[in-house]
Design a protein around this nucleic acid. Structure first.
Lengths: 211, 211
DNA sequence: GTCTATAATCAGATAGAC
DNA sequence: GTCTATCTGATTATAGAC
């Protein structure tokens, strides 16, 4: 395996585990068993390395996700459960792309939203707008009565639910094992969260306007 | 104001904004306009300072929260909306305790769950178990059909929704202003999230058992 | 209690030999 | 491309004068 990929793999698992701020280049190069200077040689800086780790996943995921959401949009009247379920297969396909791919990617996404003061949010929304646009269209088709403003809030809440859940999915899987004797995978966590977010997004519109 | 409190105030807002890892003692003492050595004199270490910042809020919040949840439990058949609404007044009371208290505390909570690999989660669950216990009892009373396992998942999802939303509440309030011309407060964000989480927790039990 | 000065360590990044 | 060695600056923490 190339040095570049060894660095990417080590960085990915360490970033997912301890966050971007919490991981040093020295930890990465030591786990990757490459020289410290290699990071700056291949990527230029730590920030560029973070982008490269995220891009590797997004380039794999975004076409699958866009196509799955487009399929949902072509339906007569999709349900919210169907819309959110469209994420399952593209996300799980990351496990074929890389071991623990789904889990790592979702944890990275969570890190990116809370570490580094939103630079990753900017990166994703500007570099991969197609995914977000298709998703909004699908939700609108499933729940046309939802106002643009309510939609904005509820999609943000959903992002929070998913991203936070996935950042701590390892701990959750441990607890499920010790408290309920269930041997769960990341796919079970995903399947568990879908009814929750679908119900949240599908909550009735409030009758009185806010404020 | 005492040096100790100046440090606590500065640490609080910087931690909320940039996370625990992302904030140095130098930034804190410089914003507090005290000497760098004062942190270690008064608190011993950065980790103890983090605990002190959180304790200041938890000691203010937890009795109010426990009492509000106990009141809900005394009702005949509380709704989930009522259960979650019990959080509103205790949380907003933090704004009288300190300027931006509600927002800062909830952001800190979010940071604590993702930074520092769960040490704050341990801190809260071991130091303030009464709040969590009362909350679970209230939810059980509002939705008795919910199994312990489903409850575990849904409460975790809820924690994620709230904590993530609040970590980025400043950005959300800005977007609501620019996109929808709404001048929102943190209290509006809280009121907005309640129907969402109540619907999520109240989603029907899945018919087929998982796995 | 507060200060200066500094120790000890770790960070990201780079120069230059090979 | 890879290595050693090092630079520069920031970090937490402490010793000791006042």
């Amino acid at each position: 395996m190339s040095t570049k990929n060894k660095i990417l793999d080590a960085a990915e698992s360490l970033f997912a585990d301890k966050g971007f701020n919490g991981t040093s280049l020295r930890e990465i190069t030591s786990q990757a068993e490459v020289n410290l200077a290699a990071v700056n040689y291949h990527f230029g800086s730590k920030k560029e390395l973070i982008k490269a780790v995220m891009s590797r996943y997004m380039n794999e995921l975004s076409p699958r996700l866009e196509s799955a959401l487009t399929q949902i949009c072509e339906k007569e009247s999709p349900s919210l459960i169907e819309v959110f379920s469209a994420f399952i297969d593209p996300l799980l396909s990351l496990n074929e792309f890389k071991v623990n791919g789904t889990s790592n990617f979702l944890q990275l996404l969570g890190r990116g939203y809370t570490d580094s003061q939103g630079f990753l949010r900017w990166f994703l929304t500007t570099q991969y707008p197609g995914v977000i646009d298709n998703f909004i269209i699908a939700v609108q088709k499933a729940y046309p009565e939802l106002s643009a403003e309510e939609m904005f809030w509820r999609l943000h809440f959903t992002m929070g639910t998913v991203v936070f859940t996935m950042s701590s999915s390892d701990a959750l899987i441990d607890i499920a094992m010790s408290d309920f004797e269930r041997e769960l995978q990341i796919s079970d966590v995903i399947r568990n969260v879908i009814p929750y977010v679908a119900a949240g997004v599908g909550a009735p519109m409030p009758v009185a306007p806010k404020s």
